[in-house]
Amino acid sequence: MEPLKLDVNVGGLFLKNPVIAASGTFGYGEEYAPFFDLGMLGGIATKGLSLKPRQGNPPPRIIETPSGMLNAIGLENVGVERFIAEKLPFLRQFDTKIIANIFGETPEEYEKLAAVLSCADGIDAIEINISCPNVKKGGAMFGADPDLAAEVTAKVRAETNLPVIVKLTPNVTDITRIALAVESAGADAVSLINTLTGMSIDIENRRPHLANITGGLSGPAVKPVALRMVWEVFHAVKIPVIGIGGITTAEDALEFMIAGAVAIQVGTANFIDPASTLAILAGIENFLDRHQIGDIRELIGSLRL
């Protein structure tokens, strides 16, 4: 029998399989290396990187909610320079694609980040985070306005030859408008969704569970919303779509691919079981085998209506 074909092309980013670890849930890879060979993954999206190191928000930063969690980390990160010097060499040891997730407070900061990362050896793609709900400036502000989203995308596009993925926020009325805007501004792919803004209150002391008051909802609870949005965006744009949101099992991942995602990212599930990504990959292979599908690409966007 022919070997299974699992490789996918995400707008010029070639992955050996469609399973990517999602930004902010996989650190810089180090924490997961004790559990499995990171080279088994299609790709790893780094924690969101900013020009300068960021401290992040005060604690408490997380709270569990039914079938999910809220987080307001506030993009704590080591900054792009220390990332390149201290974290990237470790990641580069593995046979996997490194996707640098970037975050800025102004379009110019995104531009600079793209320039710096393009010079670093070992980055395979840039994922623009215009969708973080947990920071005051930038982030979701750019993601909610089609013109600003396009401006950030165009600025990054002009600075780099690497594939540019734009990560979209679900906290908008019509996600396809933003997707179309970044497509025309030169994005090679879109990834969605980032977290849904939410809130949780401790009724005993009537305080919010998070110091930031609101936070981003992730995990199985968001999956149906994410899936619907991936399906909508898949029909709206021509560029490839990466599906994200509540994926914890191979079945979840397959739903996203059938809805139109060429690849998927696994976030919160990494916290539930550090080897989730591997189990998801194995489950996908198993499914393809069982259905005698030789090439995973046959599955993408194959939703029957």
Partner: peptide, 17 residues
Amino acid sequence: EERMACGIGACLGCVVE
């Protein structure tokens, strides 16, 4: 004690000042 998601240092959820 602080609320935790991953327990292994990846989520940055459990910080103290």
